[in-house]
Each structure stands twice: as structure tokens, then as C-alpha cells.
């Protein structure tokens, strides 16, 4: 009995340490965002603001900040839509057709995801430069494809593998073409798979930083991740941490919400992907 109690205590202690390790930085971010300037500089620092204020959010809520938030939304949404659209038929093809080179193409795709973006960024910059696409959404959407397409095909293929093939075979015997078998049978069953792949791709592109940093120099075309740099300013000692943390909070909220809504499906999907490679 004592042993059991000890075990339970240790269990809850470990969980408490875990929660502190994960959450303390996030709580600190949100609480700093709500602190008035005076409370930013107290020693020791206050974990929670004594007089919560929205003043940091007022500081950052400029038309420009709204613009870069919208930019992020546009880039992430269009990347996600294009990637999903682009990877549906190839994923189906990888999952269902047997043809020579299938494995080779699939492996190349998976390995392409593992190659350093840093090794690809200079040529992609040259493409973007040549087509005069610097400082446009197109540049970011095209560049984002490099790391999202392989992941998307990988996940989607594993979802399709999870759909019993017999359903399509019955349709094929009834004279259905491959493409209509896909559209009428696979696509409706693929809903959860598409939802979790969408979430995953959106979270990835929302975080994207390197391409946005390289391809965008006009202030009004920046995305959130790069825009936050502005609050840091030029001098490290003059950082307005309240504003930085408010902007950080705003940048994190959409992905937190999206993730909370779809986490169950997303995790199931990721596991399928990892198992059925």
C-alpha cells in the first residue's frame, strides 16, 4: 500500500515537472504580453501581471501588423490549398498503381524532404529573382512547396492505404474509370486524412521563416514570423519585450487553436505515416 502511494506521488510529481517545463515558457510569454511597462523590470520577475493591461497589444496593433498577419494567412492558406490539390492524385497513384519506378520516385520524394533547405535556397532565390517574383506571395508559395509537398504526399498516401481496396475494385468491375473510382469512392472516405494533412501543412507553413526572410524585403509584404523581428529593433539592449511577447502571442494563437481542434485526427494521421512508410 505504501509502495502504491509512493508510486502515485512520484507519478504526479513527474507530471507536474513535465507541465511546468512545457507550459512555463508559454505562460511567461502571455503574462509578459499583458504586463504594464513597470512590471517588466521588477526583480525578481513577476510570473503573473499585477495590473494586467492591453497596452502592449495596442502598441503592436498598427495597420502594418494587421497587414502582415493577413499576409501570413494568405501565404499559408494558398500554400496549403495548392499542396493538398497537388498531392491528391499522386498519393493515390503511389498507393494503388503498380508500375516501374514507383518506388524510386517515392523514395526520391521522401529523401528530397530530408535535404537541407539551405542547400536549395540559393537556386530557388535565383529562380525567384529571374522571374521577378521577389517581394510577392508567389515567391513564398512556390518556395514553401519544397518542404510541404513531400510531407503531404507521404501522409496522404498512408491514409489512402488505410482505405480497403475492395471498394474500388467493385467499382472498376462495374465499369467505373480509375479517375471516377477515385473521385466517387476514395475521395469521400479521405475526409479525415485531408483534414489532418491540411492542419499539419498549415502549421508548417505558418512557421516558415527562412524563405520569408530571404525573398521579402518590402515591409508590407512581410509575414508574421519575419515581421516580429521589427519589434526587436536594431539594438539588443533596447528590446521592448512586452511588444515582442504580445506579437508572439498573436502569432501563436491561430496554430494553437487549429491544433486543439484537430489534434486527435492529426496524431492518428502522423502515426499512420510513420508506420506505413
Amino acid at each position: 500500500m505504501i509502495n502504491f502511494k509512493l508510486r502515485t506521488t512520484l507519478l504526479y510529481l513527474a507530471v507536474a515537472i513535465l507541465v511546468i517545463w512545457i507550459l512555463l515558457p508559454i505562460v511567461w510569454m502571455v503574462s509578459t504580453a499583458f504586463k504594464p511597462p513597470k512590471e517588466q523590470f521588477t526583480a525578481p520577475p513577476l510570473l503573473f501581471p499585477l495590473n494586467p493591461t492591453l497596452s502592449n497589444f495596442e502598441t503592436i496593433a498598427t495597420p502594418w501588423f494587421i497587414r502582415i498577419f493577413v499576409n501570413s494567412l494568405i501565404v499559408s492558406t494558398s500554400t496549403t490549398a495548392i499542396v493538398i490539390g497537388m498531392s491528391l492524385l499522386p498519393s493515390y497513384s503511389f498507393a494503388r498503381f503498380r508500375f516501374r519506378l514507383r518506388r524510386h520516385i517515392f523514395y526520391t520524394l521522401i529523401f528530397s524532404q530530408m535535404f537541407p533547405l539551405a542547400a536549395l535556397i540559393i537556386p530557388i532565390y535565383m529562380i525567384v529573382f529571374t522571374f521577378n517574383l521577389l517581394d510577392t506571395y508567389y515567391a513564398l508559395v512556390i518556395a514553401n512547396l519544397t518542404f510541404t509537398v513531400p510531407t503531404s504526399v507521404w501522409l496522404m498516401r498512408s491514409f489512402i492505404l488505410g482505405i480497403p481496396v475492395e471498394l474500388e475494385e467493385a467499382a472498376l468491375i462495374d465499369g467505373c474509370s480509375k479517375i471516377s473510382a477515385f473521385a466517387r469512392i476514395v475521395l469521400p472516405l479521405l475526409g479525415p486524412g485531408i483534414a489532418s494533412t491540411t492542419t499539419y501543412i498549415f502549421i508548417l507553413t505558418w512557421q516558415e521563416f527562412l524563405f520569408a526572410l530571404t525573398f521579402i524585403s518590402l515591409d508590407e509584404m512581410k509575414t508574421l514570423t519575419v515581421g516580429i523581428l521589427r519589434f526587436i529593433g536594431q539594438y539588443a539592449y533596447a528590446i521592448d519585450w512586452g511588444a515582442v511577447m504580445a506579437a508572439s502571442t498573436v502569432a501563436s494563437v491561430p496554430v494553437f487553436v487549429l491544433f486543439m481542434l484537430l489534434q486527435r485526427q492529426l496524431i492518428a494521421g502522423l502515426l499512420k505515416g510513420a508506420l506505413k512508410t
Binding site: 512545457i22 511567461w28 510569454m29 521563416f209 514570423t225 511577447m245 489534434q263
Partner: peptide, 21 residues
Amino acid sequence: ALVILPWAMPGVVAGYLWRFI
């Protein structure tokens, strides 16, 4: 559900957070 939050958070934000900490 909470455990995965850092993964969903943008890397830049996580960077500033740790620099601040």
C-alpha cells in the same frame, strides 16, 4: 493535448521566448 503546444508554436516565437528567459 498541452504537451504538443511548443511544436505548433512558430520557431521564431520559441526563439524569442528562450532568449527572453
